[in-house]
Design a protein around this nucleic acid. Structure first.
Length: 636
RNA sequence: GCCGACGUAGCUCAGGGGUAGAGCAACUGAUUCGUAAUCAGUAGGUCCGCGGUUCGAUUCCGCGCGUCGGCACCA
């Protein structure tokens, strides 16, 4: 007897082993049709597998997240089958499901063209119509290697060779085609449905290593039904309109040109946003007990050699020279901060010492990495280094996390992804040092109640790091805030303090930034708000627009009053219809239009119109000034 | 850096081996108007750069530069 517990808690008894298909059919014909896979005691398996002992089983359909992921994985397989049918000399490599879709990496001498994508998509639909049964087989390792080598699938053979001996080698057959795969899979290609679309072509290195050959990756998206697919495509279109590069141009915030790749020309409006953010963050740092410094832009390579950066990052540093000495344009502020720390003798009483700098840094990022404001070669961070004792790491980390939360909340980011990156393969410092650093950070995050996901091996060469990640309009993640515990640099640059015991000790350095670079953070802000920045950040807060020239003089009065109230104001006295002015400033994302005509001039009032709204509010000028001043004030 | 696509007016884009096209913006003039486009006119181009093929190249070919999408990288 086999007793199967279903998700609703009910238990079904069967005489013996039963397959998922049979189970689904026993529950109902609708479910049998919708069934894609099953979950036995939490393990996802093919429907054709037998349930042999008492267990908790749920039938997975495309309404489940697991089902959708399976569907996407199958889409990758169907695409691979289509590709090999159309382009027989192509080798398949790997093809997983990813967020919103799937990809498959192919090895082929000829590049795929955008036209090929259409052909492949058509062929995929054909394969779905064929409704090929998907069958799992377990093969002998040696046979599998021999088979894949025999048909010229060298990458697959290499994959099998790399699998642990304990792992069974499974292949999935669909029609005449088969692929090495761990599974599970849908029962047949027909279950995939047709709510998929091939999206883009890209190069990708075999096994993610730039030393390996480059494969051709085809990305696709796949959904449970046409409606979901359409919604997703519409969402993408909308997201494109939020792209900070597009809005930056439309809103006249900044530009980048080829004579200064990866460096930003901030226009007056963009620079106003930048300055607002900077004075806000400066206030927060003052409140949190930081001191601000400023250090040289050009520093002798000797210092970078001592710090260890020269060895690891020489290739990405801009170097100049003077009197036969190599001078590096600073890629970061930390070694300079240690130089200030090292002036005079530090006592344990001086710690923690929180040293901030808005220093302009330059890194020669690979050309292919450059991306609008998000990845630049010249940038400024809200950078600071906290020199503290090992005992203080926990409390300093905790208060940093609290400060970061306050700041992110003020900018409207309430949900932030946090990654914990631990020791990388190539690193400085002993394992004991890394143990201490990693533990200290982990304890501090626990104390601050911060959840994170592990990002194994991605720490900085001198220490583990916490990364605070924000998402752009089309779902790309960018590291903004960071905290890195560094036990190495103080050693290398000989920083010390006199302890309570009268002996000399090494301080710990916490490298930390909240916004990360101003450039990237502004990029994220623009996308997050689709250009409609909060009042305190928006470059132009109020436009005073006249209805006819009769009100010109009064409009100037209004603008002056609002300016005195600390607002960023312009007047629009042009001989244009009010409709025209409203449209233009609305498209320019000006949050408040103060309309003044003959009536307002006589009564000394203004008609305030909010962006996106279609009614107005008539207020006495003095009251309007008071109210807008309060509304436009930065967060307290 | 690697793979692919793309590069035409300030912007968005069409075109195509034979003197370069639209809309918006700009400029000029008229219009004084009540909450998302008033009308008319004018001007605007090394068709990314260099080389080749051709009687003739913005168009075809090659190389370079840049942009975009991924990959790799990200102190």
């Amino acid at each position: 007897m086999v007793a199967i517990t279903l998700p609703d808690g009910s238990v079904r008894q069967f005489d013996g082993a039963i397959t998922g298909e049979q189970l689904a059919a026993s529950i109902g014909p609708g479910l049998a049709k919708a069934a894609l896979a099953m979950k036995i005691d939490g393990q996802l398996l093919d429907l054709a597998r037998a349930i042999e002992k008492d267990s908790a089983v749920s039938i997975v359909t495309k309404k489940d997240a697991d089902g959708l992921e399976l569907l996407r994985h199958d889409a990758a397989h169907v695409m691979a089958e289509a590709v090999q049918e159309l382009f027989p000399k192509t080798q398949v490599t790997i093809g997983p499901a990813i967020e919103n879709g799937f990809y498959y990496d192919f090895a082929r001498t000829e590049p795929f063209t955008p036209d090929d994508l259409t052909k492949i998509e058509d062929k995929m639909r054909e394969i779905v119509d064929r409704d090929e049964k998907i069958i799992r087989e377990v093969w002998e390792r040696a046979d599998a290697i021999k088979y894949f080598k025999g048909i010229g699938e060298d990458y697959k053979a290499e994959l099998i060779e790399g699998l642990p001996a304990s792992e069974p080698i499974t292949v999935y057959k669909q029609g005449k085609w088969l692929d090495l795969c761990r599974g599970p899979h849908l029962p047949s290609t027909g279950k995939l449905g047709k709510a998929f679309k091939l999206m883009k072509l890209a190069g990708a290195y075999w096994r993610g290593d730039s030393k390996n050959e480059m494969l051709q990756r085809i990305y696709g998206t796949a959904w449970g039904d046409e409606k979901q697919l359409k919604e997703y495509l519409t969402m993408l279109e909308e997201a494109e309109k939020r792209d900070h590069r597009r809005l930056g141009q439309e809103m006249d915030l900044f530009h980048i040109q080829e004579e200064a790749r990866g460096a930003v020309f901030w226009h007056p409006k963009g620079w106003t946003v930048y300055r607002s953010i900077q004075s806000y963050i400066r206030r927060r740092l003052d409140e949190a007990g930081y001191v601000e410094v400023n250090t040289p832009m050009l520093v002798d390579s000797v210092l970078w050699q001592k710090s260890g950066h020269w060895d690891k990052f020489r290739h990405a540093m801009f170097v100049s020279e003077s009197e036969e000495r190599a001078l590096a344009i600073k890629p970061m502020n930390c070694p300079c901060h240690v130089q200030i720390y090292n002036q005079g003798i530090k006592s344990y009483r001086d710690l923690p010492l929180r040293m901030a700098e808005f220093g302009a840094c330059h890194r020669n990022e690979p050309s292919g990495a450059l991306h609008g404001l998000m990845r630049v070669r010249a940038f400024v961070q809200d950078d600071a280094h906290i020199f503290c004792t090992e005992d203080q790491v926990k409390s300093e980390t905790k208060s940093f996390i609290e400060l970061l939360r306050t700041v992110y909340k003020d900018f409207g980011f309430n949900e932030v992804k946090v990654k914990f990156s631990d020791r990388p393969p190539v690193r400085a410092g002993s394992d004991e040092t890394w143990d201490r650093a990693e533990n200290a950070l982990k304890e501090a995050t626990a104390a601050a109640g911060l959840d994170w996901e592990l990002n194994p091996g991605e720490g900085a060469f001198y220490g583990p790091k916490l990364e605070f990640v924000l998402r752009d309009a089309i779902g790309r993640d960018w590291q903004c805030g960071t905290l890195q515990a560094d036990f190495v640099l103080p050693e290398r640059l000989d920083a010390e303090y006199v302890g309570e015991d009268g002996a000399k000790h090494r301080p710990v350095m916490l490298h930390r930034a909240i916004l990360g670079s101003f450039e990237r953070f502004i990029g994220i802000l623009i996308e997050n708000y689709a250009g409609k920045l909060p009042l305190w950040l928006t470059p132009l807060q109020v436009v005073v627009a006249t209805i006819t020239s009769d009100a010109n003089e009064y409009a100037a009065d209004v603008a002056k009053t609002l300016q005195k109230a600390g607002l960023r104001v312009e007047t629009d006295l042009r001989n244009e219809k009010i409709n025209y002015k409203v449209r233009e400033h609305s498209l320019g994302k000006v949050p408040i239009i103060a309309v003044v005509g003959k009536k307002e001039a006589e009564e000394r009032t203004v008609a305030l119109r909010r962006l996106g709204g279609n009614n107005q509010e008539i207020l006495a000028l003095a009251e309007a000034a008071d109210r807008l001043r309060a509304e436009c004030a930065p967060p307290a």
